[in-house]
Each structure stands twice: as structure tokens, then as C-alpha cells.
């Protein structure tokens, strides 16, 4: 098991109150594609960040178990965490603009990502970087190598982020809303790219999104979060058999191109969903 999360709880304390944002999440990830879906604020990002120990400093975390490839994340020292972050696990966020260095060429950033993990000479690293750019299906990798981040589109930026994350041959890719800022055509290409790379390299993928149909198309399994809990976990192929009223509500309230609905069903939130 690559990732083992048992009873994860994340709380924020203020002088007057405690807000529990994640309330007992349990998840396992192996060499597979797991999707986490749920509305904004349901605790998806915090769950993923807990795994990398990248939580806000005011967050209080507890878990019965929180391990990455056998390493206890709650107890690991900072050096062990550095080996996990950006090496054994790659983290891809919504907007590549904030993750790429604006004053460094793309080629140099990918080359440095490679050398940090693999060492080797400049020439070798440059060729490896160009190969990585080609692997994320950038058509003219040698030309793109010399560009700056502001000279490329959002979709291209996201490909470059993926290339950098792949440099150290990670075991797990965590993608938090990686395509929410992209157009439908580009979104489909990026997701297909991640899907292919993950299967070719035998990695695990944790794909976080608010888009349930999208996630079910690109993952093997889907965990549905509501108010800090996983309320249902399904094989992606069984989405139409979802039992939890929240999951069903999420699917029903979408307008559809092929099946017109005169009026959209709305979600009637039940207090009982909070208790699970």
C-alpha cells in the first residue's frame, strides 16, 4: 500500500472555537488512480496536504495512521519529508503560474529538477529535460526549452509542471484541481496525459476535483467527500449505482446536453449526512 490514511482529523482552533475541517477520513491508495470529489470546503485539499505535511501552521492534525510507503508522516523528521515531497510524490496544483519560477527559462527549471534528483552533468541533464518535455507531449521540446513561463499557455504550463514532477520518478502523483483553470479541449488532453504516464510508469494517482463525472472518467476509484468525511467510496464504473443521497444529488443536479431536464433537481441537504 502506497498511502494508508486511517481516521485523519484536521482542526483549526481559535480563541473561542474549534472548527474540525476533516473529520475522520480513511483512504488507501495503491498503484491505481483514486479520485476525491466533493464541493468546495469539503476538505479535499487539506487531506492531500496532510499527506505531504504541507498544512497551515495553525492546523491541528491527528490520525490513527498516516503513512506514505511505510513512512509515518506524523513522526517523520523534516529530512524524511523532503525525500517524500517532490521526490517520491509529485504535487500538481491548479495554476502552474504560481508554481513555475517566472524569471527562469522552462528548460533550466526542468534541468534543475532533474539534476537535483539524478545528478549528472549539464549536457546529460539537458537531454533528459528535453526528453521529459517530449514525454508530456510538448511538440517542439527544444524550442520550448528556451521559453519563459509567461510565453506559454496554461495548458503548456501544466505539462511543464508534470514534466518536472516526473523527473525523480515518483511513486505517487497528487493533482489538486489540475485542470480547473483550463479549457475543455486542453483539460481532456492533460488528463489523458496524466492517465497514460501513471499507467506506463506504474505510479499511483490522487486526482482531486469538484467535477464528479470528470473524475469518474479518469480514475479507477472515487471517494466522495462531504463536510470533512468520505461519505461514499465507489469503483468509478459504478457511479450510476451510487447509494449516498449526496453523491446522487451531485449527479442529478447537473444540466445535461443529451438528456435535457426542464428543471434542475436541487440538493436537499440532510442533517444526517453530517453524522455519516
Amino acid at each position: 500500500m502506497l498511502v494508508d490514511i486511517q481516521n485523519l482529523r484536521i482542526a483549526f482552533e481559535t480563541r473561542t472555537s474549534v472548527f474540525e475541517a476533516v473529520r475522520g477520513v480513511s483512504l488507501n491508495i495503491g498503484t491505481e488512480k483514486l479520485g476525491i470529489v466533493g464541493e468546495s470546503g469539503s476538505g479535499k485539499s487539506l487531506t492531500a496536504r496532510a499527506l505531504m505535511r504541507l498544512l497551515p501552521t495553525n492546523a491541528r492534525v491527528t490520525a490513527d495512521r498516516l503513512t506514505f510507503d511505510g513512512v509515518d508522516i506524523l513522526k517523520a523528521d523534516e529530512r524524511a519529508m523532503l525525500r517524500i515531497r517532490g521526490k517520491r510524490a509529485g504535487f500538481i496544483l491548479q495554476d502552474p503560474k504560481y508554481s513555475l519560477n517566472p524569471v527562469m527559462t522552462i528548460g533550466r527549471q526542468v534541468t534543475e529538477a532533474w539534476r537535483t534528483h539524478k545528478g549528472g552533468g549539464r549536457k546529460e541533464a539537458k537531454e533528459a529535460a528535453i526528453d521529459l518535455l517530449a514525454q508530456v507531449r510538448i511538440r517542439e521540446p527544444r524550442r520550448v526549452y528556451d521559453l519563459y513561463p509567461h510565453e506559454v499557455s496554461g495548458g503548456m504550463g501544466q505539462r511543464i509542471m508534470i514534466a518536472m514532477m516526473l523527473a525523480p520518478d515518483p511513486q505517487l502523483l497528487i493533482a489538486d484541481e489540475p485542470t480547473s483553470a483550463l479549457d475543455a479541449t486542453v483539460q481532456a488532453e492533460i488528463l489523458r496525459l496524466m492517465e497514460d504516464l501513471v499507467s506506463q510508469r506504474g505510479m499511483g494517482l490522487l486526482l482531486i476535483s469538484h467535477d464528479l463525472p470528470l473524475v469518474s472518467h479518469f480514475c479507477d476509484r472515487v471517494a466522495v467527500m462531504y463536510a470533512g468525511r468520505v461519505v461514499e467510496e465507489l469503483a468509478a464504473g459504478d457511479l450510476s449505482k451510487a447509494q449516498h443521497p449526496y453523491t446522487r444529488g451531485l449527479l442529478n443536479c447537473l444540466p445535461s446536453l443529451i438528456h435535457p431536464k426542464p428543471r434542475l433537481p436541487v440538493l436537499n441537504r440532510d442533517e444526517a449526512w453530517l453524522k455519516s
Binding site: A184, T185, A188, P213, L214, S216, H217, A236, G237, D238, L239, S240, L251, L254, S256, L257, I258
Partner: peptide, 10 residues
């Protein structure tokens, strides 16, 4: 076709 493709729930 992109829109329809994503709509079909498996």
C-alpha cells in the same frame, strides 16, 4: 463531443 464524452456516467 468533449461535453458529451464527460457526461456519460460509467
Amino acid at each position: 463531443s468533449l461535453s458529451v464524452g464527460l457526461e456519460e456516467v460509467p
